[in-house]
């Protein structure tokens, strides 16, 4: 399957409704059911994944099993240190972690054998929890470079900065940011909220079959959260899948997960639907994890 490269003409994007409560998920749900029926192989198949921190040799993942099909929205919750972020980082090939066992198949290919850039080009995106500053490299330069890497992979001609401009502007609107956002250096001097929006802007520009959002909601105020969640809903078509790592219910209400997982001690301890979130909020992770 070709990775979903958004193009200028693919969709017309409406500006975000300023403050109305978003109601977009309905269509997603319907389409989602259809896609579930037609999907033959899972988009992501994780079996007994084990990983440790390279430097300290500490084992963090103790056998994660997870299947994500096309169009599904998964939420991974769990207390601090349960391995949620490590799981996301291992999937994108973070060099701080070493896989010690298990397998990950993404779109029919062995993900663990791929370099981080190959994983990205094959349609896996992760928003960083704390995106790093890149002084001396402007946001538009970076986006054009990443966008062109994607075009190159698809056999399309690379575009110059000017040719990309209108495309970038369109995506910028999607995350509700001013154009000068593009001239600033990548994440340099960005507030917490700006960094999160910048991650979503990159997702909007690059597209993804599976977007992993690692605590995209932490540090965001209500308006920013609505902007971000709204943008995510607009970026993802019913064919895309989403995996979000979060501590909070707010974003789940905005993005409507089809599956909710609780991670505990480096494993997925329990899987359910959105109703499990209420139990977690009422009784805490310990109870939920223990009741498997």
């Amino acid at each position: 399957m070709a990775l979903s490269l958004p193009t200028h003409s693919s969709r017309s994007l409406l500006p975000l409704p300023p403050s109305t409560k978003p109601t977009f998920p309905t269509l997603r749900r319907l389409n989602h059911r259809v896609s579930l029926v037609t999907a033959s192989t899972p988009l992501l198949q994780v079996n007994d994944l084990r990983a440790k921190i390279v430097e300290s040799n500490v084992q963090i993942l103790h056998g994660v099993n997870l299947t994500v099909n096309q169009g599904e929205v998964h939420a991974i919750m769990g207390k601090n240190g349960s391995g949620k972020s490590t799981f996301a980082k291992v999937l994108v090939g973070h060099p701080d972690y070493e896989v010690t066992g298990g397998s990950v198949v993404f779109k029919g290919e062995n993900l663990l054998e791929m370099e981080p850039e190959e994983r990205s080009l094959s349609g896996l995106f992760m928003s960083f929890q704390s995106p790093v500053e890149i002084p001396g490299v402007s946001n538009d330069e970076f986006l054009v470079m990443a966008y062109n890497a994607r075009r190159k992979k698809l056999g399309l001609p690379e575009l110059g900065p000017l040719e990309c401009f209108s495309y970038l502007m369109e995506k910028l609107q999607l995350v509700n940011m001013k154009p000068d956002f593009l001239n600033r250096n990548v994440n340099e001097g960005f507030s917490g909220g700006e960094r999160k929006r910048n991650e979503i802007l990159q997702l909007a520009v690059l597209g993804a079959d599976l977007a992993i959002l690692d605590e995209i909601d932490s540090g965001l105020d209500v308006d920013a959260l609505r902007d971000v969640a709204g943008a995510v809903n607009r970026i993802l078509t019913p064919q895309n899948s989403l995996m979000m790592i979060t501590h909070y219910r707010r974003i789940l209400d905005l993005l409507n997960p089809t599956h909710v997982h609780v991670m505990d001690k480096g494993k997925i301890a329990r899987t359910g639907d959105i109703s499990m979130v209420e139990t977690i909020e009422a009784e805490g992770y310990e109870t939920v994890s223990a009741s498997t």
């Binding site: 080009l121 995106p131 470079m145 990443a146 890497a149 992979k153 690059l206």
Partner: peptide
């Protein structure tokens, strides 16, 4: 920083 580029599809 390198990983950030790679994670967006840019080779090392």
């Amino acid at each position: 920083q390198l990983l950030y580029f790679q994670a967006r599809g840019i080779d090392q």
